[in-house]
Design a protein around this nucleic acid. Sequence first.
DNA 1: GAACCATGTTTCACAATATGAAATACAATT
DNA 2: AATTGTATTTCATATTGTGAAACATGGTTC
Lengths: 257, 257
Amino acid sequence: MPHNKPYPGTQAVIRALSLLKAFDDARPAWGLTELSEAVGLNKTTTFRLLTALESEGMVARNPQTDTYQLGTAVITLGGYALRTNDLRTICQPELKALAAAAQETAALELLTGAETLILDEIMGDRVMSGGQAIGTRWAAHTTSTGKAMLSHLSPAELREILPAPLPAATPHTITEWDALIADLKNTQERGYAVANQELEVGLAAVGAPLFNYDGEVVAAISLAGPNSRVTPDRIPQLGQLVCEAARRISIRLGWQP
Amino acid sequence: MPHNKPYPGTQAVIRALSLLKAFDDARPAWGLTELSEAVGLNKTTTFRLLTALESEGMVARNPQTDTYQLGTAVITLGGYALRTNDLRTICQPELKALAAAAQETAALELLTGAETLILDEIMGDRVMSGGQAIGTRWAAHTTSTGKAMLSHLSPAELREILPAPLPAATPHTITEWDALIADLKNTQERGYAVANQELEVGLAAVGAPLFNYDGEVVAAISLAGPNSRVTPDRIPQLGQLVCEAARRISIRLGWQP
DNA sequence: GAACCATGTTTCACAATATGAAATACAATT
DNA sequence: AATTGTATTTCATATTGTGAAACATGGTTC
């Protein structure tokens, strides 16, 4: 999350947004005092900002527990943001085809800072209705999509973006800088990234980057599944599927091969 | 959308949020000047607020067109808001069962002011992965879920909530006050609401309310489909399905029948 | 290619607005 | 009844947000 420039005359807004961002999967409800302490704001200020956010439906209080949660306006805005995303619309047919062909989960993700953001997700099997994880972020160096996108950055750019030391999500996560650089080099040559239990034990994935009209990486798509199904000998085949789909999408985005 | 109390010391935050809310399906991208005019703010103020929103990822600029859109932080927050919603988690198994049994689309919706908010949506057929409309709002008096929830309010409460005159979404929308009151009375006695082409031509739906521990209506669920399949003679059967599911969920919410 | 128009951006003097310490209210334990 | 933890309200202060005006930029028109 970039907190770049302290622009003058925006303190209250930035603070209000920092309150909103305190709510996540791990901590979906906050009391006033705890929240003010967690965010480092005066209790009165926190109260006033929350009142403003509440009046606009961005947060809601649970009268039972006297705590705040994210409100319905956030859900509505999120829906708009998702539906009006051109990239998502463009990619959806390819994702569905990928998921159907491989019978695994296909996803579209963006790089935001050092994290990937799941923009869309289509389940391969017919059991689930997908999209449960849309909006989720993961550390980029632990995911196939993340590594696919990172593989087109220079070591200097990587240094700037990625945290040091690299956090481990599983025992298989690449945490050594040199090992990551080497893996990204392989990734770029190969055309797709492989993440085998680096984000979650038992989960394997392949991912390929999407390019825009002037050859910049704008996003990545992936196929993922349990490593019982996504086995080492099947990975080249899945990798090719993802690469082909990524290529078709990139061309639609104006990319010149 | 309630714009109730002008709480002191929150002007900047409220203004910033009003900017966010200008972005919707109909108008996903705004230039600075047009946006400032639409929201009624000084161009400089709009610029400063947008800069703050942008620094936090709530909006993003498209460098091509020099316009602003909703940013990735909104998607992430929306995902959190959705996933941490207890009601949605509780209802999802029932919605899936409903959708499978009827082979139509099942949905869970809240009442916010005079509008319903789609919290969850499961498609009945195996073609689509659902959830496309999550976050969308519709005028409550045009939907089955909306009427199911409104049917438990008094005429005085209805007067307060609903807009006058009642807007028409289709030629079949109930726009006469007395007709709506009568329809809601029927709805309450029947236990479920019927909306036949009142939101969209060719779309029919039945909806039933969900009650909490002290008998208050907290949400509603529905089954909807093309009126070629959701025919008048099939509606009682679908109505019963929805009522039974609603009853089971309400009991899980602590409701005493 | 000069004049124009419509964008976005920066500056700056001013005071309205946001701030936080302290006082108050409320509710749940003890 | 006393205590501790919450959530609110008050209010004096100056920091912060404000908007008119000036500036910059890029695209059209003549």
